[in-house]
């Protein structure tokens, strides 16, 4: 049976291709490929080439223009200053709640639904709610004023905090669902084993669960960070789009639809993507230092 000796005919070419995974089932990939090419690869490379064809100057002059203008360059820092803490808070807040909810209990579905509802609302409705609740004449400030805790309304909208809250509200359910599924992928017997070996709950968490969860947390952080980094509607609606929440996507929008400078807008979009990639690369590099194999759970 070992291979085709002299005189033995080779298996049919179709069979040999199928052994390497090439068969007619590959055609099933076509719709997905069409989508990826039409909706991602083509626009991306179109934008990339466009960014090297500025209206004035050499191929890199739009990039140079962005970095030489401190107002423009500053948008990177502004966006990071909002997106990084928001993503971090989302992940950190999701861990204890998901940890408490990993087992089975009555009403789990109800609690999960309540926690996940914000994801379905969309940014505009969330912004509307934030304005009503946290605005200068919102309930929150009215309660503070009525109870004489403050003399004048605390400003929580149309600034950094408005955008930050909006990102937490929309990003948390996302982080929570991901962390919950990573947690239920860890075999609960491991913690029971640690308990019989003398570990109290704190050390069971820090020595067993957390190290096994870290790769999942890193992935969750990356995804929530990307969502937060591309913040746009809430930066306009509950932020201060001319000042402290002039995020990078806003800069790209203004270049494209206020100055009609598509090459410049493309260049900004490319810079935006590059910054995201750098952050993700750093997080994933840190992630690879943890154990990322099977954790014995239901996956």
């Amino acid at each position: 049976m070992s291979g085709a000796g002299p005189g033995r005919p080779l298996a049919h070419w179709r069979h040999r291709l199928a052994e390497r995974g090439v068969d007619r089932q590959l055609w099933l990939l076509v719709p997905a490929l069409v989508f990826v090419i039409a909706l991602f690869l083509y626009p991306f490379f179109y934008g990339l080439t466009l960014s090297f064809q500025p209206t004035r100057g050499g191929p890199f002059s739009d990039y140079a223009r962005f970095f030489s203008d401190s107002y423009e360059r500053g948008t990177i820092w502004i966006t990071l200053r909002i997106a990084l803490p928001a993503a971090l808070l989302n992940v950190l807040a999701a861990v204890p709640i998901a940890y408490r909810m990993r087992g089975r209990f009555r009403g789990k579905r109800l609690v999960t639904t309540l926690l996940v509802v914000p994801i379905t609302l969309g940014t505009v409705l969330t912004a509307q709610g934030l304005l009503n609740f946290l605005g200068p004449t919102g309930w929150f400030n009215r309660i503070l004023l009525a109870s004489n805790l403050v003399d004048e309304p605390v400003r929580l909208t149309h600034n950094y905090w408005g955008v930050f809250f909006s990102l937490v509200i929309t990003g948390f359910p996302f982080a929570f669902l991901l962390v919950l599924s990573y947690l239920s992928g860890i075999d609960p017997t491991l913690e029971r084993a640690a308990a019989t070996l003398g570990a109290d709950w704190r050390r069971r968490f820090t020595r067993i669960t957390l190290p096994l969860l870290m790769p999942g947390l890193a992935t969750t952080f990356c995804l929530t960070f990307v969502l937060a980094f591309s913040v746009f509607p809430s930066a306009v609606l509950v932020g201060n789009p001319a000042g402290e929440t002039r995020v990078i996507s806003l800069a790209a929008y203004q270049a494209a639809y206020e100055q009609y400078d598509y090459p410049y807008a493309s260049a900004i979009a490319m810079i935006m993507g590059f910054v995201e990639l750098v952050i993700i690369a750093v997080v994933l590099a840190a992630r690879s230092r943890f154990y990322t194999g099977s954790t014995g759970g239901k996956g």
Partner: peptide, 29 residues
């Protein structure tokens, strides 16, 4: 609680800590 009983337990699925070496697993207790 289990951690204060001081009983050793061998589980059907072994429940070894997958991120720790054999030495660290054994030394855990």
């Amino acid at each position: 609680p289990p951690e204060r009983r001081g009983f050793g337990m061998v589980f059907q699925s072994y429940a070894l800590f997958p991120h720790l070496t054999v030495r660290a697993n054994i030394a855990f207790g």
